[in-house]
Amino acid sequence: MEAESAAGGAPSTRRWRHALEDRRVLAPLLIAPAVIFIVLVVGLPFGWAIYLSLTDAIGGSLSGNWVGFDNFTNAWSDDNFQKALRNTLIFTFASQIIVVIGAAILSAFLVRDFRGRWIVRFLIVLPWAAPVVLSTITWLWILDSLYSVLNWTLDRLHLDNALVWLFDVTRFEEGAQVPLQWLGRPNLALAAITLVHAWRILPFAVVIFIAGRASIPNEVEDASKIDGATGLKKLWYVDLPLQLPIALVAVLFGIVFTAGDFAVVYILTAGGPFNSTQVLPTWAFQIGINSGSLGEGAAISLYLFPLLVVVTVAMLFFARRAQVS
């Protein structure tokens, strides 16, 4: 017994200790909690959604009769679904264009040393830090049909009619009235939602862009100065190419966040006016949860899957490239 103790405990304990020192055991053991967690909270619901989409399950049940791809074909033939799909793409890509341009400009500004830089940085990051529901409700009030602070400001500055003239709103949205009902006309509502999405994602992109700029070696900066690259030239030929991999990561994250977002559209318009601003998540919710057609709702939500798979694969690819460079 004493000899065994001196050798480090009972044989079974020793076997465990040795096993834990083996990478083939230790690595899976350490990663197992994360894998189990993801399987439980993502994998199972996802598998269940695929199953439901192939059945005629209705609200109040978690199973149904097998209907093959009927839910997918039925959804595809619906005008509102097609609008929702189109809007999902519009909101996602239009907002990302604004985000990329905005983040490039803001990050160039924010890396400079100036008084109050931290306050400005804090204010810019704030929309990202605030809960999306809360910030969207704030936007709902900003764009409210009656108490819109935006319209109030435009009115006090005598800019409301000027805005209509400047942007030719009446052509942009035939019949639109002043004060502008931002959420009462399809095109205005689409524009408003796109801007809110951009406002929400912008801080995240700015932070990524700033990090990207910080990673540009000083030697490159110096070399570009010696070569006479300044201002826009430097931005176009030096900063942007070097930032591209990490910028793409920001964009791809932004696409995932926006395409899968439910709260902004649901709170601002509930898909209105006349279902013209529905996106796939809100339409899936209306059909699957509120109307009780669970199978059809699951099918609608799964239409997002191919888009998000492509984006995610690209995201992982660029993230890896950014890391390597």
Binding site: G175, P273, F274, N275, Q286, N290, G292
Partner: peptide
């Protein structure tokens, strides 16, 4: 019934009226 429920939940009525009102 469930039909009326779905008609309500998918906003088919406001959609129809608003599209006509806005001349769509």
């Amino acid at each position: 019934n469930a039909v009326i429920d779905e008609i309500f939940q998918t906003w088919m009525l406001p959609q129809m009226f608003a599209q006509v009102a806005q001349g769509k």
